[in-house]
Design a protein around this nucleic acid. Structure first.
Lengths: 249, 249
DNA sequence: GACCGCGCTTCCGCTGAACGGAAGGATGGA
DNA sequence: TCCATCCTTCCGTTCAGCGGAAGCGCGGTC
């Protein structure tokens, strides 16, 4: 019933962050395919370089696919432009710096930058988190189109900590605030030990295409002291995007 | 004749760094497919999220594919571990820092780190360069298996500048040198204006899995002053890789 | 050393999904 | 209004993909 294309993609999607290396049988099971079918598909994917086979016989995502994916404008493409600015921001703040975009009703982290001395955070490049519990999420939600916003607020909002804001009315107030101030401060909503200061990054046509944040430990630090730097960096990236020939939808 | 899987991958491979956004017809032409076939494939790929359609109607690589590809152990996976160290190295040197792996007979750049003030270099994350003309390439070639090394040295070696070393005998001498000193210095071999200092990154089993380099302007700077920092960083990453549970083939 | 279990690989005949030529929009420029 | 370009849909034919089954290779167990 399913098309070949869909099957190929399902094979790729069988890999996940917690299981990035799979045997053929695991792969077949996860993709819901008979072993012989999986065997053929995986063989073709491996020959092309979309998958690679490790010394242990397990398969993992290959470099060739990574190269192609690096062309995703909202992935490494956006990253490429933003990187020098993130770099500068990291140097000023010496805290985790993150860049994220909106996809569906979630945040996808496109870049995370941290020295060895920074606080450990559990976001991962390529990872997803919900919109209502992160600084970048609040920024993206605040500037998302109203239809999406209502859909997110109408759905049940998962609680991560005692501080997670799960009340639609209160979130609505926070989002309005984000729109007027131009920054979001998410305090302990996803992890009690950290808070983040986020600001919107705009594309050439003025739409918000990404959000950027600094994650700092919540013990005593005054988040407001980070606001100017975060805001300035976000503006810098927006300007660089406008100047670059690439257009982000 | 070609399998569906191959076609799907060819569609993805139609995107390149210089043309990351394509109309349906361009895509069909590049992939060598009839328009109607391309239309169907692209439709399925878009529905899944492997491709996205921009406001202008052009297609580009999608976020979903990027997420999957981020699991490539030699791509973002390796990157993830190395990042904090690269970060630290950048801060000490304030020069371009690069991380690359070997694929086939070329170098693939996995990460490039630079502030706004650094020299502009023409490498790009996800990009490829030949082994004989770059610092990271020399390191990877020096530690590659002898079969590959001979194959590379036997093939014609492209000249990029007057300083590019294209003589197999001289290269062989340089590679031996890299193995004894543990660092490679590539002076103006790819661009006259810059030189790079590179060192090997080893996986848990001692194999060289990547190389790391600092690119500095060639005007008067003494490359040897960078050697200790580069070497220390490479060792640090190697140790971190050994400590992490992920194994890089 | 014979047996078993597990995971991978190969084979092959059937079938329906993929194919692509052709016709039909949609858009925009002359 | 006409033409050019690009995109979308349709539909009959065919052959590539399918997957059950059988075979292989290895490591563990009695």
């Amino acid at each position: 019933m399913p098309t070949v294309t869909a099957r190929v993609l399902d094979v790729l999607a069988a890999f996940s962050a917690d299981r990035p290396r799979l045997t053929l049988s695991e792969l077949a099971a996860r993709a819901g395919l008979p072993l012989s079918t999986a065997h053929r598909l995986v063989g073709e994917l491996t020959a092309w370089g979309a998958l690679e086979r490790g010394d242990d016989g397990r398969y993992h995502v290959g470099l060739r696919l990574w190269e192609v994916a690096a062309l995703a404008p909202r992935g490494l493409g956006l990253r490429e432009t933003a990187m020098p600015f993130l770099e500068d921001l990291y140097e000023v703040t010496r805290q985790n710096v993150q860049l994220a975009v909106l996809d569906g009703t979630e945040v996808v982290y496109v870049e995370r930058l941290a020295g060895r001395s920074s606080v450990h955070v559990f976001t991962r490049v390529g990872g997803r988190l919900p919109l209502h519990a992160t600084g970048v999420g609040l920024v993206l939600l605040a500037h998302a189109d109203p239809g999406l916003r209502e859909r997110v607020l109408a759905a049940p909002l998962r609680r991560y900590t005692a501080k997670t804001v799960c009340d639609p009315a209160e979130l609505r107030r926070m989002l309005a605030d984000v729109r007027t101030t131009g920054v979001a401060i998410s305090d302990g909503q996803i992890e009690l030990i950290s808070l983040s200061v986020a600001a919107p990054v705009r594309g050439p046509n003025g739409d918000v295409v990404a959000a950027l944040s600094v994650v700092v430990p919540s013990d005593g630090t005054n988040p407001h002291s980070f606001v100017p730097a975060v805001r300035a960096t976000a503006r810098g990236i927006s300007r660089a995007l406008a100047a670059s020939e690439h257009h982000f939808q």
